[in-house]
Nucleic acid binder design. Structure first.
Length: 418
RNA sequence: CGGGGUGUGGCUUAGAUGGCUAAAGCGCCGCGUUUGGGACGCGGAGAUCCCCAGUUCGAGUCUGGGCACCCCGACCA
């Protein structure tokens, strides 16, 4: 992609009315635009990141046997009346059709998915089964905030699983937790498995995946010697300074964190409410055990910016960057530099490298470098009169740059991929 | 939903006590000079001053109502 052709452009002056780093940088660098409170448009640049996060999540869900589906945003009110959510869920958006019928916008998809599963799950042989989708959710928050970290509309991956026995559920639950940790590791984030309440979903303990962040809303207590972590807003048993209940080797420390994922043991709550039954080996009719597992895709994008940035801009981890390389030509007056940069662009692109090529001839070197830092692609490549037949390569996260041949650069990029 | 704040070209803002053609920087268009950390000159386009009422000879400015956005809190399937 050539910067001159790119739909979005960077802003020189920071946007007004942005409370958090992710909001300011994402707007300034041109990844998102706010449409109204808590609702955002993702530009081509922003959508690339969202898609990369989705893809990593998708791969890990597929690995544990999840099958991707796509369920709708708009639901009939009957679905929500059946579960009680129509009256109980205060953040539910409700709407009326022209003929006066009631509909709801998806807060989540337990109702829809359980209804769907009734069609296909009839026997213990149909389980374990898990399906997921990546779809927008709507929640009528009293106050959205923190940029894309708490929107009224947000992208979420939600997976649902059904099991004939609790033991089978427990096996899958552990697999799902492990998959979540792999997702966040691939995203470059350290997520703590955190004990929390099940909210309106279940009486049981649920697990949240929390990333330490000042922009987060969760208050957690965690142990630095082991992986113990608890959400203190939900579970008030522990206090700051208490000995770790798991390893006992350290005192619990308080921190702010952002919830990027969660897993719930729903038991038979929804299978009973929607009368989803199966026949077991003995011919007896039973309700499956159900689990649900969410990852906030758009929130995670915000958390990534909160986690990876400096005073100049965003520093995207390799796996989620909109482009792997930002190629900058300096000395735009020179036809020779232009030609060489164009050739490097072609060579990298043809080798399968995703390149954002700042081909603007009339823009000063300083402006281009500042924009490259702001947008935050992991690798910056400069072609100028100084670089001769080589290119200057610098990591966004590092200070020093190196001159090298394009071939060397390609080899290096390949190594990073593996 | 309670409290506080803000609404002026695409963006960031200035416009005391009401007054003449609404100002600047950035961005945009044209011409020229520039090109290793946000260059410069000259010329130009672009504004229903959030909306609706009202007060007044006269409203971006005052009054009332509404809407939107932001912050703090509450809420957060």
């Amino acid at each position: 992609m050539k910067y001159s052709q790119l739909f979005s452009k960077t802003l020189k002056t920071a946007p007004n009315a942005t409370d958090t780093v992710n909001h300011r940088l994402l707007v300034q660098a041109g990844f998102v635009r706010q449409v109204m409170a808590g609702v955002y448009t993702y530009t081509p640049l922003g959508l690339r990141v969202l898609n990369k996060i989705s893809q990593i999540v998708r791969e890990e869900m597929d690995k544990i046997g999840g099958q991707e589906v796509l369920m709708p945003l708009m639901h009939p009110s009957s679905l929500w009346k059946k579960s009680g959510g129509w009256d109980k869920v205060d953040v539910l958006f409700k709407l009326k059709s022209r003929t006066g019928k009631d509909y709801a916008l998806a807060v989540s998809h337990e109702e829809t998915v359980t209804t769907l599963a009734r069609e296909f799950i009839h026997s213990y042989k149909d389980m374990p089964m898990s399906i997921y989708h990546i779809q927008w959710k709507f929640r009528d928050e009293l106050r959205s905030k923190s940029g894309i970290m708490r929107g009224r509309e947000f992208l979420m991956k939600d997976l649902y699983s059904w099991h004939a026995t609790q033991a089978d559920f427990d096996v899958f639950y552990a697999k799902a937790k492990a998959a979540y940790l792999r997702v966040f590791e691939r995203l470059g984030l350290t997520a703590k498995v955190t004990e929390a309440s099940g909210g309106a979903f279940t009486e049981k303990v649920s697990y949240e995946f929390e990333v330490l962040s000042e922009a987060g809303e969760a208050n957690i207590l965690y142990c630095q010697m082991c992986d113990y972590c608890v959400n203190v807003d939900d579970i008030k048993t522990y206090h700051e300074g208490d000995d770790c209940p798991k390893c006992g080797k350290d005192k619990l420390r308080p921190a702010k964190a952002a919830e990027v994922g969660n897993v719930f043991d729903l038991g038979q709550k929804y299978t009973k409410a929607f009368d989803l039954t199966f026949i077991d080996e003995k011919g007896e009719k039973k309700y499956p055990i159900m689990g649900c597992y969410g990852i906030g895709i758009s929130r995670t994008m915000g958390v990534l910016v909160e986690t990876f940035h400096d005073e100049r801009g965003i520093i995207w981890p390799r796996g989620v960057a909109p482009f792997e390389v930002q190629l900058v030509s300096i000395g735009g007056g020179s036809a020779e530099v232009e030609e060489r940069a164009e050739a490097v662009y072609k060579e990298l692109t043809q080798a399968g490298v995703e390149v954002l090529f700042d081909d603007r001839a009339e823009v000063s070197a300083g402006a281009k470098l500042a924009d490259a830092d702001l947008i935050g692609c992991p690798t910056r490549v400069i072609v100028s009169e100084k670089t001769g037949m080589q290119v200057e390569v610098k990591k966004r996260s590092e200070k020093d740059s190196t001159l090298m041949e394009v071939n060397e650069l390609l080899k290096k990029l390949q190594t990073l991929k593996d």
